[in-house]
């Protein structure tokens, strides 16, 4: 299924990179301490398809991003905090601009979070944590993310809150759409019990590629963006219109399509600015839900 989902559709629309606003770093590659059954790039303790980025590499691209006028930086994996240089990388990023790190919050050390709080205080810019938890209790979360991960993640959130951060809790919708409000209410309640009384919550759609294509189903052949769909559509709703991703294999078009060979565009940011074909099932989800990877503070809007 996943292979079919990545098949390029013929004669599809393309999208230009209008403005390189967000620069992502695949800082832990596809290495993760967890092996979530819905992961769209199938990260796991054994997946070496993409490797770690070093502080030196990150700095090289941060420097290049200045010329490009990038607004903010995102750090993802895999689990970013498996990268031994992660704290230093975030400290470096905060010298350049706002940084967001996407984490499962299960491997934190108190000392790291203290250092990061100090780095944010010393910076003009914000450090955001986005913590993935896929349900308001172990019963919903753990079958997806692994035994005991709910309790560990909630403890990680508690540590962030104790250090003064207000993490954004992101949850992939592994329940029926109609249950959103119930799930959010349960999240508010459980997080309050762990000291987080004004949680920031964000629901993400499922991306039916990678492990998720095996767990449920892949994209159907008609779940593709057509030329007709692009008429009167605000193209800035698509992440690839304003983002690129640095990986150890080069600069990629978006954080979702890494398993697609065509997603790797170039060695430098400057050379990655070409149009990209919206040929994949995941593009359809991005079209439906709009800039799903970007923080609410920065979601581009139509003029």
């Amino acid at each position: 299924m996943s292979t079919a989902a990545q098949t390029q559709s013929p004669n599809c629309p393309t999208v230009p990179l209008s403005s390189l606003d967000e620069l992502w770093f695949q800082v832990a590659g596809t290495r993760c301490n967890l092996e979530c059954s819905h992961c769209f790039i199938s990260c796991s303790p054994h997946n070496d398809k993409f490797g770690y980025l070093s502080l030196k590499t990150v700095r090289r691209y941060l420097d290049e991003s200045v010329e490009q006028g990038v607004r903010e930086y995102y750090f993802t994996g895999g689990e970013p905090f498996l990268n031994k240089e992660m704290v230093s990388i975030l400290e470096a990023a905060l010298e350049y601009g706002p940084a967001t790190v996407l984490t499962n919050a299960t491997v934190f050390k108190r000392e790291w979070i203290e250092r990061l709080r100090a780095a944010e205080d010393a910076s003009t810019f914000c450090l955001e944590f986005r913590v993935s938890i896929d349900g308001p209790n172990s019963e919903t979360n753990d079958p997806i993310r692994g035994e005991g991960t709910f309790e560990r993640a909630v403890r990680g959130v508690g540590m962030l809150v104790e250090e003064g951060f207000l993490p954004i809790i992101t949850m992939t919708r592994v329940w029926d759409d109609g249950d959103d409000q119930r799930v959010l209410a349960e999240f508010r309640s459980i997080l309050a019990e762990h000291g987080y009384t004004r949680p920031r919550l964000k629901i993400l759609p499922r991306l039916k590629i990678g492990a998720e294509a095996e767990r449920t189903e892949g994209y159907g052949q008609f779940e593709r963006i057509t030329h007709e769909m692009m008429e009167d559509f605000d193209v800035s709703d698509l992440v690839c219109n304003h983002s690129r991703v640095v990986t150890d294999k080069g600069v990629a078009v978006c954080p979702i399509l890494l398993d697609t060979p065509a997603a790797i565009l170039s060695e430098t940011l400057a050379d990655s600015k070409r149009d990209f074909p919206l040929a994949y099932g995941a593009c359809f989800t991005c079209y439906q839900f709009g800039a799903i990877c970007t923080n609410p503070t920065s979601k581009p809007m139509e003029k």
Partner: peptide, 23 residues
């Protein structure tokens, strides 16, 4: 300058991005 409803928060906007907007 490029979008009427774009939020430019102090902590979420790099200086080089603002330089680009000014350019």
């Amino acid at each position: 300058p490029r979008k009427t409803n774009e939020f430019l928060w102090e902590s979420a906007t790099s200086t080089h991005f603002l330089n680009r907007l000014a350019d």
